[in-house]
Structure formats: structure tokens, C-alpha cells
Design a protein around this nucleic acid. Sequence first.
DNA 1: ACCTGAACACCGTTCAAGT
DNA 2: ACCTGAACACCGTTCAAGT
Lengths: 212, 212
Amino acid sequence: MTKGITRELIVTAALELLDDQGIDGLTVRALASRLDVRAPALYWHVRNKQELLDEMATEVMRRVTAAFAAVQPGAGWHDDLTAYARVLRAEYLRHRDGARVFSGTRITEPDVVRMKEPLFERWTASGWKPADADDAVDVVTAFVVGFVIEEQERRQAAETDPTRYSAAQRDAWLGEGASLVKEAGHLQDDGDQRFERHLDIVLAGLAARLGG
Amino acid sequence: MTKGITRELIVTAALELLDDQGIDGLTVRALASRLDVRAPALYWHVRNKQELLDEMATEVMRRVTAAFAAVQPGAGWHDDLTAYARVLRAEYLRHRDGARVFSGTRITEPDVVRMKEPLFERWTASGWKPADADDAVDVVTAFVVGFVIEEQERRQAAETDPTRYSAAQRDAWLGEGASLVKEAGHLQDDGDQRFERHLDIVLAGLAARLGG
DNA sequence: ACCTGAACACCGTTCAAGT
DNA sequence: ACCTGAACACCGTTCAAGT
């Protein structure tokens, strides 16, 4: 009962391995070793490494769905999309290079796509067309993906090369002039505040164009 | 004179190889073969493969800068950011997996960052603070990155598996119910129209929050 | 200064063979 | 049904040696 590996165990272990070792350390052999089997054993459960990556992405999206479902239903599309954006970012941030690795990968689970239905129902009831609802979700998703890719890259670069993102170092690197760019760089904040501010801009655009 | 390889020749050939063979085909040996040398020769010009990828990303961003500089200066931030978004998307689309491969990679060229200065000068002259200008560029960049990642993934999936994105196939895959999700899927357009519509939403948000 | 040949440690994947 | 041992073709990278 407790022995033998399953698809789910493999995917879970793969996500842990990604977080521990990074994308380059996510090798079939290392994953097998973590599961106490030899590499070829994995091929009984998974067609190839690409399928494993797809499964990992689907699992992450399942967690997004679950985390989102656990949130109180909001008063309208604005609340709903705010919660969705925060949950999506949080799940991406949970994994090393999460946004880059898991964005745009095909969802192998219909339920993850079907979760949009209750949202669409509520939003269309309050005046949006289905096409509007679709645009709204996709614009917010695109923004979150792009934001977190940049965010994780910056965070990672700060670890490997701490001087890189120090204000003084950046100014020197930029050379003479570019005073406004430097000033903006000094003011630039990181993390949640910045995310909320940028998300607010995107949602304001949805309100302006689709009504709300 | 005509013999011997240079950093620039390597980067150019690497971009071509990426487009021809995809990211998995972009190997040091294949690249060397394309340049008529053996693999170790590249290590005289480039520290390692990661540095090559950084150089490729920088080159793409240089082309974004150049293409953007060739555009007529707009009447204000709205025109400027529209042109920037279109140019960024166009350069990403030019390369296989361009958005995924080149987004979030560190820019090794100060000039590419310094190009923001004239924009910031004009925008602050019309009322934005430097921090606003920075937010605006970053929100638009995040949106474009996320949009094109999804766009290229969809395009690629459509090539390998044409049934995947057909309406009927998708409906069957989704199963019973989810009628609004299906309806939205049927209406969903691709490409430029969709990009312009979504970009318009983001810019409307900037206008609403930062003034315009 | 610039490039090659040979080698190293390591990949993803296949497959006959084991239980 | 599920896993292993051995093997294959291929990686990125190093380095002594060539010119």
C-alpha cells in the first residue's frame, strides 16, 4: 500500500525538487532518486518529461482554483478578479520560476477551465457579455504572468548578485544622464504594494472599457 | 577578415537557430556547426550558455529600442506606450517562444534602459511623476509579456495539435455545462484585433489612475 | 589570439529482462 | 503491473595542445 509511486506522488515530488534545485536541477534522475526508484521507472507513469511539466502546471492551476474557491465570493467582477489575481500570483510565487515555468502551458484538466463558469454567470448577470468576461480574465492573467515573471527574475538576480539591484550600483551602471530613469529606480518599491498598485490600474481599465 | 567568429555573429546565428529548431534545438554544438567551428570555440567568445541567452535577450531588446526609435514621436504618453507595446510584441513574435525566452532576462546593455529617459522627460513635462512613468512602462510591459506568452503557446499548440483549439473539440473536452465558457470560446478572436482591444483596456486604466 | 580533439560528468529515453 | 540494468545518442563545459 505505502509502496510504489503514482502520478500524483511524482508531480508533488517534482514541484518540491523544482523549488529546491531550480529548473536546471529538475532532472528525471534526480526526481527518481527523490522517489527512491531508478529513472526509467518514471516512464511507466508519465510519457515523457514534457508531460510531467504539463502535469505540474495543471497541478499548480488546480491549487489556484482551490485557493480561489476558498475565497469569499465578492460583490462583483472587481472583487472576483482582485481575488483571482492575488491567488494566481501567490501560487506562482510559491515555486521557483513559477510564472515562467507554469504560464502558458496547456491545461490538461477540464475542471480548471470549467471553474470560470460560475464567475461568468455572475458577471453576465450584471451586464457583461461572455466575450467581455473572457477578455477580462485574460487581461488580468496576462498582467499577473508578466508581473510575476519580472518579480521573480528580480528577486533571483538580487540573490545571486546583490549589488545588481542596489541603487548606487545601478546608477553607476547607467552612466551619465538619465536622471529621471535613476530617480524612478530609486523610488521603485517591490512586492505586494507594487502589485496592488499595478493591479488597480488594470482593473480601472476594465471598469472604463467594459463598465462596472 | 571574413574569417573567424565574433560575439555578434554568434548571437545572430543563435537567434536564427532558435527560430529554426526551437529552444531545445538551441545547443552549443548545433550553434557551432552553423558557424563552421567546433563547440569549444564558442567558449572563447562567451563565458557559457547562460551568457549567450542574456546576449540574445539584450539583442532583441536593442531591436525593440531601434524599432521604437524609428516610430514617429507621439502626441503624449498614450501614443508612446501604444507604439512601445506594439513594437515589443512584434519583436517577441519574431522569434520562436520569444516572449517566454526573452522576458525577464537581465538587460546587459545600459543603453536599452537609458532609452526610457526621453520618454520620461516628455511624460513628466505633461504632469506625470517619474514614479508614474515607471509604473506605466512596467504595467504595459507586464501585459505584453503575458499576452504574447499565451499567444505563442496557443499558436504553437495549434500547429502540433490542430484539433486542440477547434471549437467543437474544445466543447467536447469541456464536457456538459459550462455554456458561457464555451460561448466565450467560440467568440474568441486571435491576433492583432485581440491585442489592440486588450491593450486599450490597459491604457484606459493608466488614463483613469494616472490622468491623461 | 583564436580554435580543435579528446575527455568528463551528465542528460532524456528505450528496452529487454526481472518480479 | 511495475520496476531495474544496461545502453544509446546527446548535452554543457574544460583543457591541453595546436596555429
